[in-house]
Design a protein around this nucleic acid. Structure first.
Lengths: 237, 237
DNA sequence: TAGCATAACTTGTATATACAAGTTATGCAA
DNA sequence: TTGCATAACTTGTATATACAAGTTATGCTA
């Protein structure tokens, strides 16, 4: 059985997305929702909390839950969205080209960031991302071989996250991400359509599994004019 | 009386920060904490949820709550951190210089983004941020005059958020943020120490109050080599 | 000893109840 | 009509209980 609060979340999220409930309006009260879904108020509140965290609604004590504008709504919560998802929201033609996939022995920098044994087998995956025909993003992924033994070029060309979660049953838990601007290297210029750009936006991210082990390290280089990062931050404290 | 779960959160967060509880170790179980704080399990769970959201711990069903590494812990949750906070975590000399503060009548673009009446009074605040003596960040803030009537240059030179929250009692609720790279304008080059850089990282953010009204719009231009954005994303769904 | 079922933990979900705190509409009184 | 107390909403916090689901250690059995 699917979790109840998740089901309520999905249903309400869809109603907001399809504008069945319009922005600016109030959601039905917690008590009404409790009755409608034949559940307890706490369960409804968990669903509403999720909606709030993901930018669908804004809760106001004493008033109710206001539905927020959705047109500019950023992706779930930045940081774990794949290129595929990203392109779905923009309306562009997207291609992914695997330029290399090899299994190497970890050493030096990679061994250090992945926190694995010296010489442990590690997938090194290079992917070139094209947006409307132009090569504008270059990804280098490093992931532990023992955790994704069946990786192939075909799989890698699709969404890696989908493969990890659906096929391997690994559940990705959280990611740390850093965004900086760096000088384009000679090899970057050879691979990507950089035009006269001399700098690249570099996104480095570490993906952790549920057991807190570091699983994947990615360096993603973006042509500056095609880079866009959207973030939705909520005040917690 | 302070909220109980918040108090528990503060206490545990401090213990993690001061490494009284070390990274990699498990937190006491929910039942133990319930007893220790003489409260109910749900209250403890709310505190733990906050700790998890802010990257202090990682909850694992059946095992417990693992304390995460804190050294690389990014700022609270990106998006609402002020320049002052940012500089505190890095160890650099920081200066803020208010280059202009004026109250203008809203029109055109600004009237549109702030969603206010044509001609409504709006503060326009320009600030130059220096890092170790170099002018590397230029902020333009626009905020509704009626919500911050007593703004002065002195206040603006400090942290605006502190002023809004502590002095005016306004509670900031959430912010949308966009990060892109754009060509440096002639006036940018005149104001900032750009060297040979031709592009700037531009962060545009909208700050909302609890009643979901847009309150402040900020455009922050960063010299690319001094820009760094850190994000901590947690899988929600 | 080795293997395995099980007991004893852990966190996750769902329910019910009570009252606090904030907002809004009602309706009485001046 | 105006003003104000109040009632009737809303969401927020705190508590108690029950069972599900996942992990780990115990200890029995072969």
């Amino acid at each position: 059985m699917e979790k109840k609060f998740q089901a309520i979340y999905d249903l309400l999220a869809k109603e907001i997305q399809t504008e069945k409930i319009k922005a600016g309006k109030l959601l039905p009260s917690e008590n009404e929702l409790t009755e409608r879904f034949a559940t307890s108020r706490e369960t409804v509140r968990k669903a509403l909390q999720l909606l709030s965290q993901n930018g669908y609604i804004q809760k106001l004590q004493g008033k109710g839950s206001v539905v927020l504008e959705q047109d500019k709504l950023p992706l779930p919560v930045s940081g774990l969205t794949s290129f595929k998802e990203l392109s779905r929201s923009m309306s562009h033609k997207v291609e992914t080209c695997v330029t290399s996939l090899s299994c190497k022995k970890a050493h030096g920098f990679i061994q250090q960031v992945l926190q694995c044994e010296e010489g442990a087998p590690v997938w090194e995956l290079h992917r070139l991302r094209k947006l409307d025909g132009e090569a504008v993003i270059y990804d280098k992924d490093f992931l532990l071989e023992e955790l994704a033994p069946g990786l192939t070029e075909e799989i890698a060309g699709d969404s890696i996250y989908d493969y990890l979660e659906q096929e391997l049953g690994l559940s990705i838990s959280y990611a740390k991400k850093e965004v900086v601007v760096e000088e384009a290297q000679v090899e970057d210029k050879a691979i990507m359509d950089l035009g006269s750009y001399q700098q690249l936006v570099v996104v480095r991210s570490a993906v952790y599994l549920e057991d807190t082990t570091l699983f994947q390290y990615t360096e993603s280089k973006h042509r500056p004019d095609k880079f866009r990062f959207v973030d939705f931050a909520r005040r917690t404290k």
